[in-house]
Write a protein that binds this DNA or RNA. Structure first.
Lengths: 344, 344
DNA sequence: GTCCCTCGTGTAATCGATTACACAAGGGAT
DNA sequence: ATCCCTTGTGTAATCGATTACACGAGGGAC
């Protein structure tokens, strides 16, 4: 593979001139520039990003550590992050932590070893050692979706509080009184917050949230199934199951179906995070939708600000309720065409 | 950030000794090794992968260029690729080409600039210039899922021919005679092959595949919707729609629903690529499942072989039919419990 | 003509690692 | 005692770029 020296030889100039010509430095004569460009063309030269990074101390690369690419929510997040990063001249390296703190640390360490310019993290857990080291070391960082309380890093996330209140209002209006939740890991902010918001919203209607109606999940389908089986085995099973993410809702659906029960007649179901398939499940599933794309883009902008030495602002976007049939027939007077309404 | 020089100073040895100690070189005295390790510990030193790569000419990084992370099939592929690569000591950088040749070229170029050790590609299109250059330049490469005919690169893929025959047999047994397909882009091998396999299987039953029953899609949901709308507007609409990937099946479902029709009573639906949601759609969707995880792992192994100078073998894995209710009730004698049967 | 400034270019240091080569010390064989 | 070999270590070259600094040529002001 041709190096800058080869180009210099081919063009009959020094490597400095080649570098200057290629980087748009002003003081290069048109003649020299032309010869460099011609040499680049004939040799098919492409600058070695590794060498450049070593010298300039920047890689123009961002790291993104998420907890599960198989979760459509994170896949969409990853996609929008890459898109915005590309627009700003950065590449993105994705690390999939699989909700495992050790894997998260592995990816953070690997990314740091590669001297990425900045790190976007959706922390899996209360804060793995490697991540905290990275913060302490001053790596430009932004939390996205989830965050670590007490750590001084900008946070870009959705606030589902309002949407959860809307959901509970919706459920209450449909006559449901015994509501249960499949929570995410308590160590994650989204895991805790969604439970808190749910409890708070229930409180506004004078409804309790007994411990038996709080199932501990891990954002994976398997846990949704197990927790739901537990709910269904209760002497007084809940009338509604609210899954804190879409994969646990999938697991809940598995469990309900295995029991031979029907949604929403026997039990209602709702989920945090909307995905396109929810329109076509049996029945269509009521969900709380985040502006995932905007989240990813805002996170990248905040991170690039930090990298550039600017403060990098935290952003909180609203989430919204998308009612469908999984909680019971919506009031026909207010939504004459549920089909229409549930299509984003 | 501490460099190898700092470690050398702290340990009172030369940089060479530090490097040797850290790389397990035999001739380092236990005393020196201990002091180096201690210095590494106190300074929190981590080797700079950029510098190491420049010197050693290897990055221990693989590139993976896929056409759409939002497609659960590719998300799963990406995940298994990363997993196997990690097990072999490699990192993976994913490039999302979004079915766009220009984006594919952008990612190939960026990855090459970063001097990745090898490239895994699921080519979007008949062969974008940058990709062919990469092949010509001798970059270790392996095609996964899709490939470019006539290009001398190992291919790791599924062969759906047998499964498609099974599907057509299944459809025929259910009494369907007018079968249509939503094809993928003709420039992709999977796009062409699935149509060919379908046509061939139909031929075995003496069924035609008229042009009007071949809709041109692009593996995205939108195209599935448009093509299906076209099918439904035909004077004699098909009895079955077979979507060449899961996203186009989603679009087809959208279109069918918008028309107020029902699956499978009014029209049957099947898809290539199985995803977990297909169990819970209304109705559950008959699909052809690939061993996606095994595909990704085999591809990484082949690529690492190539990088190591070994040949790197092509692999073809079988796909299998997973019948569900979207094509009509399966024969109750043979599958008394469709619920059971459709759960993988 | 002299001085000085600008412009274009080249030389060489530098980034942080790896590694060929040189070399000193110590031990065993003779 | 001498020679040689092994072992451990250091010096310095190297990877491929960027960039500070030096320098020569040319032009304008006086």
């Amino acid at each position: 593979m041709a190096s800058i020296k080869d180009v210099a030889a081919e063009a009959g100039v020094s490597v400095a001139t080649v570098s200057r010509a290629l980087n748009g430095h002003p003081s290069v004569s048109p003649a020299a520039r032309a010869r460099v460009l011609a040499a680049v063309e004939t040799l098919g030269y492409r600058p070695n990003a590794v060498a450049r990074s070593l010298r300039t101390h920047q890689t123009r690369t961002l790291g993104l550590v998420i907890s599960d690419v198989l979760n459509p929510y994170f896949a969409e997040l990853a996609r929008s992050v890459e898109e915005e990063a590309r627009a700003l001249g950065y590449s993105v390296i994705i690390g999939n932590a699989d909700e495992r703190p050790d894997l998260q640390d592995h990816h953070v360490a690997t990314l740091l070893d590669r001297r990425i310019d900045g790190l976007l993290v959706s922390p899996t857990d209360g804060g793995s050692p490697g991540m905290l080291d990275a913060v302490r070391a001053g790596t430009p960082m932004v939390f996205v979706d989830r965050w670590l309380p007490g750590v001084d890093v900008p946070v870009v996330r959705s606030d589902g509080r309002k949407a959860v209140r809307d959901l509970v209002a919706h459920l209450h209006a449909l006559g449901h009184r015994r509501l249960a939740i499949i929570a995410g890991p308590a160590a994650t902010t989204t895991g805790r917050e969604r439970v808190d918001a749910f409890r708070e919203a229930l409180g506004a209607y004078g409804l309790p949230l007994p411990d038996a109606y709080i199932g501990q999940g891990d954002f994976q389908a398997g846990s949704g199934r197990r927790v739901t089986e537990g709910f269904l085995a209760l002497p007084e099973p809940p009338e509604v199951v609210f899954a804190a993410d879409n994969l646990m809702a999938l697991g809940a659906l598995d469990a309900i179906r295995a029991r031979g029960l029907r949604v929403p007649d026997d039990i209602a179901l709702a989920a945090f995070d909307d995905i396109r398939w929810f329109v076509h499940t049996d029945p269509p599933i009521t969900a709380i939708a985040q502006s995932t794309g905007e989240l990813g883009r805002a996170a990248v902008r905040a991170l690039v600000d930090r990298i550039g030495g600017r403060p990098g602002e935290s952003v909180t976007l609203p989430a919204r309720l998308v009612p469908r049939r999984s909680c019971g027939e919506p009031d026909p007077a207010r939504s004459p065409s549920p089909v229409r309404r549930s299509t984003p």
